[in-house]
Structures are given as C-alpha cells and as structure tokens.
Write a protein that binds this DNA or RNA. Sequence first.
DNA 1: AGATTTACTA
Length: 636
Amino acid sequence: MSSAILFTAPPLPTPSINRSTLSFTAAASSASNFPPTPDKLAILLDKSNSIHHLLQIHAALLRHGLHQHHILNFKLQRSYSSQGRLDYSLALFNRTRNPNIFFYTSIINAHALHGLSQEALFIYTQMLYEGVQPNEFTFSSILKSCSLEHGKMLHSQVIKLGFDSDLYVQTGLVDVYARGGDVGSARLVFERMPEKSLVSLTTMLTCYAKHGELKEARLLFDGMVKKDVVCWNVMIDGYAQHGMPNEALVLFRRMLAAKARPNEITILAVLSACGQLGALESGRWLHSYVDNNGIRVNVRLATALIDMYSKCGSLEDARLVFDKIYDKDVVAWNSMIIGYALHGFSHDAIELFNEMCRMGLRPTDITFIGVLGACGHAGLVEKGWSFFNAMRDEYEIEPKIEHYGCMVNLLGRGGRLEEAYELVKNMKVEPDPILWGALLGACRLHGNLELGEKIAEYLVSHNLANSGTYILLSNMYAAKGNWEEVARIRTLMKDSGVRKEPGCSSIEVNNRVHEFLAGDLKHPKTEEIYRMLEEMNGWLKAHGYTPQTEIVLHDIGDEQKEQSLEVHSEKLALAYGLISTQPGTPIKIVKNLRVCSDCHAATKLISKITSRKIVMRDRNRFHHFVNGSCSCGDYW
DNA sequence: AGATTTACTA
C-alpha cells in the first residue's frame, strides 16, 4: 500500500444533465430553497438514495462554496460509501482540509466494510500522524479490519486512551482475537466485560463455533436469554461446518419450534448440513420452505441448493435449480460441474466446463477440482493431463495439492503408478498424508507392493502415517497372502497409537437422519435391524457370496472376522433401509469414509436380490447399485 | 448538527 495510490484522488464527479438531474436541480433552486442552506442540503443528503442525487448535491456544495463544510462532506462521503462508490468517497475525503475525527472514523469504517483493511489501517496511521486522537468509535471501526498483530497494538492504545470500558470496543477486541485464532485472549476480554450485549455474546459464540469448540459454544448459546436470528445462525452453521450436520439439523428444528424466523443465511447453513448428511427429504422441505416464505432464491442460495441436491443424490433437481439461475456465476457452474463429477457423469461435467468457458467465465481452481475429478472417475487420463496443463499454461492457476491428488487418483486408476509417483516427487508443494494415501491406494489396487512399501515406509518413518496408511498396506499384504506382514503392520499400528477413524453410515427415513457405527446397538429398532441383517446374510450365502475376511485388520479368527464384516455401518444402514422403506423404492445411504470393498460387493448383490436401487455416497463419490452392478465400475 | 459491534454458498 503506497500513499501514491491512496492519495491520488480520482477526478471529481462531473454531474451530467439528464431528466432526474433536471428535476432535482429545479427542486433545489426553487424560490424558497435558494440559496440552499447547509441545513437543507443535509436533509437532502439524508434523503438521497441514488448516485445522481449525490452528485447533484456535491455539485451544489462546490457551487455555493460549501465544499469545505465538515458535516456536509461527512454526510456526502458516507452516502457515497453506502452506494458502493468508495472512489468518490475517498476523493472527497482527500480534498477536505483537516478532516476531523468524525470524518476519519467514517472513511476508515467505509474501507473496513469494503474489506480494504490495508487502506483502513493506512488512513488510521495517517490520522495519528496528523495529530487527530482516535476515540471509541474509531477503534470499533478499525478493529474490524486488522490482524491479530495489529489488534494487539491497538488493544494497548485502547487501554492507554481509556476506551477499554466501552462495550463496542470490547466487542471489537473479542472479535479481533477470535479472528486471529487467539481464543484464549478473546475469552479473557469477553469474561472481563461487566456487561454483555447480544452482539458481544454472539461474537464470542462465533469465536467458539469457528474454532470447532462446539461444546463451549453450545453452553454459551443455551445460556443466552435473548436469541436473535444471528446467534441461531452462528450455532447452526458451527455444527454444519464442523462435521456435526445432524446437530445442525436438529437445532434448526428447535429454531423453528422457538418461532425464530430463519433467513437466507440460516438456509445456507442448513442446506450444507443436508448435503453432508444426504438428507434429501429435509433438503426438499427446506427448498419449499424457501419458496413459501418469500426468501429470494439468489445465486448463492441456488448454488447451495445445487450442492445439496447433488450431494443428496438428486442430480435432476440440482440441474433444475441450475437452469433457473439467470445470473450464474463461476461458483454456481463449479457446483454443478462437481455434482456431475460426483455422480460419475464425467462427460456431462466436461461438457458443462466447455459451456462455461464459452459463456466467457474464467474457471477457478475449484473448477479444475471438478473436471479433474470427472476425468478420474471415468479414467480419462489424457484428458486429465490436458486439463492439468491448461490450468497452469492457459489459465495461470498454480495447481494445489488437491489437484495433484486428482491427478494421482487418475493416473493410479490407469495403472500409471510410476508417472503418479514422479508427479508427486516433482511437485512444488509439500505432499500431505491424503496425497500419499491416494498413491498408496493406487498401489494397492494394482498390487504394486514394491512402491507401496516404499511409500508406507517413508510415511511411517516421517510420522506421517495415519490409520489409512496402515490399513492400505495391510490390505496389500493380505491380498498377497503374506500374513506375517499383516500381523507386523497391525502391531505397528497399535504401537503408533494411530486409531482408525470410525466408519459411520447414515440413512434418512421420514425426515430424520439415522446414524450407525459398526456394531452399533443404539438404534431403537436394533432387534429388527439385526434380524434383517441375518436375513441378508442368508440371501448372500445362498448366492454363493464369500465375505472378504482378508480385509479385516484385527487379530481374530475367521468366523469373528466374518462377524465383524457383517456389522459394518454400511450394512446396518442398509438393513434399516430395507425394513423401514417401501419395497421397490430406492435406498440412499451416506458413508463418511470410502465404502469398504466387502460392503461394496455385498451391496451389489443385495440390489439384485431385492430388485432395489441402492445409492451410496462415500467420501469420494456416488455409487449407484442397480441389479447387481455399480456405476463406479468397481473402481473407487 | 455528525458515528461504532455479530452470521455468508464450491
């Protein structure tokens, strides 16, 4: 940020003569209003709601020698800013001699509101340099747009100048520490506040929610006597953004029960939760709630709907929403492209990408996640390479680790392991465990023990191994029948203290999401579920199905291994789906990890036996099981 | 005569 940029004022507006200008001028210069007094101009300024009016008044100020009038300039500047014309605002500020604290505060606030924090800070320091003392209003404005480091410096100035007992300033400080990730300091300032407003409570609530401290957040939330839509939103979104989507949904229902009125932001958060859960019924209900309650479906809301529908398995509905957006932005295109990719409709995803480019929109890094993912699901290696190269060469987007991940998946699927390994070795960014996991997964798929061992060893020795590393490696040895190595890996995993992330599957029935962990006995219908499970096993055996006991990582007998497979979360959810939905209707299941290969094989067969379509979303993509086969073509 | 704080979609 240089002063040259900031203080080179754009040319002052030259009012143009048009209809509205003429009538306005006529009003301003009618006999009783002429010459305009500052009072009258102030009233006009407060009433003005268009940039034309503001320019007219500005012209009047200049014509009548009022262009150094502090209050009028202040008001004019504020109106320019609120019309989004920060350039006029700043020009006016720079042409006003010796701006006072009101003017300084207001121009700082305007920059802060427009996200121009560097500029806001620069003006603030300029103000200090000019010898103008900040007050509590200035602090609450400047605190919005500063880093933790600057926040600390401002905090000491706040104390020095004695504004630390001001409610607004305190709230601003809590917010600064919260945004800077210093939850402890935020809490300290917060707890020292003698009086806490709804806003300051919400600020602290946001702090907890943003940093994943949902228990603390909920405690604070439950203690709030007065709740407005904002604090409901913070709490619901906190759950949605931290892997607790069901809690978000449950809280949303309580919000409705408490007669609080959701707004667009509430809906965005809850749609995200529905998407994560695959809760299509709830998502549809929300969509109709939006339509029935006068909430405008703008491009953001529409995008959230697309995301929800595609994650809930209804690409058709996603497309309907997409087609209705008249001002599609790149985010909307991205989510539709990703939707197609997620479902394995790779060619549609790529076609949509081309269409988007034809419309003149510039793809972003997220767009490439979509098309590279699409290539991966369809095994389009050359196409993938051309996207990957175009990304850098044509669109000047530096590939991120996620893009390398897509490429590794793609090359891995095509069996081009060495190529994938070379890519990883030569990339400029540091590989992360997810990327290594993708490569390791490819090694397992093609039985390339040599490379797999090399990678796993590297990961273990660098303390980068996660549960997936051990499991993949163990599966590789198991596939080769090397049971000693399987046992060794198991011990290694135990010693490392790494625990497997528990698999969790969920299914939505009657607007409620039912979650299952492996071997879960918590569901009220547990008995019926397990009876169904037995029946399913009977069907599978009758069709000559052999459980894939070799993928079980525990040191137990074969029979117990079979039993441990039988109660996998996917199968529990499936069993519950079979007993609680109408015959012939599709069953939709969501799993938090990748679907296990035994469950995948079993589900294929069950789709055939029961003549039901089973849609399963795992961490990576959708699997549509129909009549004994899966849309992923057994690669995932 | 004049002002400041909370929530946000891949």
